[in-house]
Design a protein around this nucleic acid. Sequence first.
DNA 1: ACCTCGTAAGACAGCGCTATCTCGCATGTT
DNA 2: AACATGCGAGATAGCGCTGTCTTACGAGGT
Lengths: 338, 338
Amino acid sequence: MAKMRSRGTGLPTLAEVAAKAGVSPITASRALRAVPSVDPDLVERVRKAAKLLGYVPNPAARTLASARSRSVMVLIPALTNQLFIEMFEMIEQVLSARGFEALMGHYHYDQAEEERLIRNYLAYQPCGILVTGFGQSEVSARLLADCGLPRIHMMELAETADVASVGFSQEAAGAAVARHLIERGRRHFAFFGAQLDRRLLQRRDGFQRALVEAGFPPALEIMTPEPSSIALGAAQFSALRQTDPGIDAIFFCNDDLAFGASFEALRQGVRVPETIAFVGFNDLPGADQILPRLTSVRTPRAEIGRCAALRLLALIEGEKPADTRLDLGFELIVRDSS
Amino acid sequence: MAKMRSRGTGLPTLAEVAAKAGVSPITASRALRAVPSVDPDLVERVRKAAKLLGYVPNPAARTLASARSRSVMVLIPALTNQLFIEMFEMIEQVLSARGFEALMGHYHYDQAEEERLIRNYLAYQPCGILVTGFGQSEVSARLLADCGLPRIHMMELAETADVASVGFSQEAAGAAVARHLIERGRRHFAFFGAQLDRRLLQRRDGFQRALVEAGFPPALEIMTPEPSSIALGAAQFSALRQTDPGIDAIFFCNDDLAFGASFEALRQGVRVPETIAFVGFNDLPGADQILPRLTSVRTPRAEIGRCAALRLLALIEGEKPADTRLDLGFELIVRDSS
DNA sequence: ACCTCGTAAGACAGCGCTATCTCGCATGTT
DNA sequence: AACATGCGAGATAGCGCTGTCTTACGAGGT
């Protein structure tokens, strides 16, 4: 019995479970993996033995033997944006309900870091990939394509039909904001951007295009590559009031910028929406509480996470993808700030 | 050479690297792990070959062979509190700089979920554990103790010297807030709590004790087990104004509650700090921007993450722990709200 | 009664790596 | 010169599990 010593962690091995159930290790393995060709009675016995011993399969051994883990690589630009947390939590929930795990990595909106992450996580032999958007470096894109793993891009919609994507049209969202502000009688527009990732630029493009199509000059762009934050929004707004007091509507690329600007407006006594209208993006918690309550674009991040995870699991299980593009839309939530 | 086929992911194996460098696999393994007894020239050659081929070690094989991974289990109550994100990012940074990885799990402040997580992650054979606080279930505590892995508790300080901890005194922080409010001439206190985890209760205890010691009656406690949020803070404050208009100082267990209350106060025309003083906790982003700028307790979460990770790595490398308790303190940031 | 066939259970090997033991060689000692 | 010593490099085995092949056995056909 020396061969059946427990693992260092104190967890039992499959062999011990098999011995307890009076079957061979292979049968125990099959029973626990729900391989169909096992006698239901034996399955029951093995299950019971496993539960009794507190058996947890060794994922390292499993991965090594099968050349495939039960983990899904999930790549997220940053953890500091609540947006991605909400998306990720849904992904995790769907995966764990089906016995999969999320191997989550975040790269601070940095392509090089994303590339390192992909390389590292590929070594874990994940069974699928969920990745945010399409802004990868060329090397990253090739790594993702060459590994041949099922993969779904989230938050953005693919331009071609050969890649699966779940998200919404960032451009359409930007355009919707423009139309709303025009409808409210605004004439002098600004766009506030930070971080400057791909999706933000798409929103801006949609916003500008809609303005131009309606006969307005393009909006003033206040852009910075630094991360979006409340303090930054306040500073940007303060600066704008100095340089361009005529602006009567601002579209913020993210709610936190809008929050900061709202605080600054209150401080300076600038009246929102009378003097200037604010529209945020994402409808983060607090948008419905701040003064004035913020008009914002509600993005379906949780639903994106859920659908992307479900579709990925379908691909992993060998299903043929029906639609490769899933547009979950967005919703403009009009509140007091516009 | 059939034995040297690449892995399914397209990544090369150690054997391929070794062949390229003209050494045995075992020497390549040692060279890449920086085992001292290898000729520097060979190390160089192996390194070069590995780089050329884009070699990434297979963590499953490594873990299986050595019965120990390079992963550290990191347990966090929730991802929705920016506090823990900041702590986690520091942990990750320290770990990855030393070639370790974080195996992060969050349990929605739920003991049962935490227990499941521990069991699952133990199967990954991590080399150490970073865990938030001391509020584990008995089973979890036993699992953690029995696995014999180096472990450090974060955010809270241990009561006994046999467990390592890095944090600050939540009680002392609560007491400091009480003293500050008393000093500001406040007389009628309330404590707003949500989530009701251990650390929150410690803060409350410190707050109440300091009030009583100064001769005041204990503060009115507005507590709910639901998660802390901006909307909740607004609702709690609104309710309090109805039931207890005489309260002239509130200590919020987390800044988001204070944010919500600040919005509601603005909406209702309740003057802060003239009519009522607000003190938050954690000094989250935005506390310095909101109206009025919020007095809050700045907690050293990033530093806690950094120190905890460094100390854990020291333990993993076999060092004897000097201090088992590391108190990183806190700072009361007095702003306009009190 | 004989054979085929399908199904359930086991045997076997091996995933990619590292712990451990072994060996060869250069160095130092008397 | 004979021997002990140390050190760098290789050989060997095995981590815990699963893919694949093999075997045992009962059912069904003639």
